[in-house]
């Protein structure tokens, strides 16, 4: 009798856990589908290479699912971007070390190694070629300006403006205080405006 009750209780618990797991997987799928494109572009601006950015986004997805799937859904975005930003920072550290080592063995740079602007350029989406060109040029200018920002300013700007995280979420993603986020963001906006306003004076993105 007791054994039967115990088996029933365990099987009910397993069934209920299975249903919860399935629901959690659906929520994870939905969350990742919502953030993956923006995350890719943010990573791409961070490392200037789409393939590397794809790898970083995939790593961030796997780490989020592996370590934080049980957290509340509202915590996923800051945690995901924290993982991604850490990945980008690690990537830069590795590149720095690699470049210091490889500088002695490097051949002269060829065009094959350059970032392929044409391959990374966005596809047409119903806009005229002139508008596309104007947008592409504006975006390239913005990307270059963002890439030249100090790391923390760049992170604050991309998380707040591109991803739309609030100050609290950005602070979690960056691993710093909300006051620091506000300072970095303020400085980033002003540095970008100063650099880009002359380029953007002639026309806006369409």
């Amino acid at each position: 009798m007791t054994a039967g009750v115990a088996i029933y209780a365990v099987s009910c618990e397993a069934e209920s856990k299975g249903a919860r797991t399935l629901q959690k997987e659906r929520q994870l799928n939905q969350f990742l589908a919502e953030v993956e494109r923006r995350a890719l572009r943010i990573a791409e601006i961070g490392v200037r290479d789409r393939d590397e950015a794809l790898d970083l986004v995939q790593d961030a997805m796997i780490k989020l699912v592996r370590n934080y799937a049980d957290r509340g859904t509202d915590e996923w975005a800051p945690l995901f971007y924290r993982i991604l930003q850490n990945g980008i920072r690690d990537w830069h550290r590795r590149q720095f070390v690699r470049n210091r080592v490889m500088v002695w063995f490097r051949r002269p740079a060829t065009d094959d190694n350059d970032y392929d602007v044409v391959a990374a350029a966005p596809d047409l989406a119903g806009r005229s070629p002139e508008q596309e060109l104007q947008n592409a040029e504006a975006m390239q200018g913005l990307e270059a300006a963002v890439q030249d920002l100090p790391t923390r300013q760049r992170e604050a700007f991309m998380l707040r403006t591109f991803e739309g995280l609030d100050v609290a979420g950005t602070a979690v993603a960056m691993g710093c205080s909300q006051g620091s986020v506000k300072t970095h963001y303020f400085r980033a906006i002003h540095a970008l405006r100063e650099r880009l306003q002359e380029h953007w004076a002639g026309g806006k993105a369409q």
Partner: peptide, 20 residues
């Protein structure tokens, strides 16, 4: 600043929508 923020966000959104 807010206007600049809106414009940059719009530009970024376009680049996201246009991924191949």
């Amino acid at each position: 600043d807010e206007k600049f923020e809106r414009e940059t966000r719009k530009l970024f959104d376009r680049s996201v929508e246009s991924l191949d």
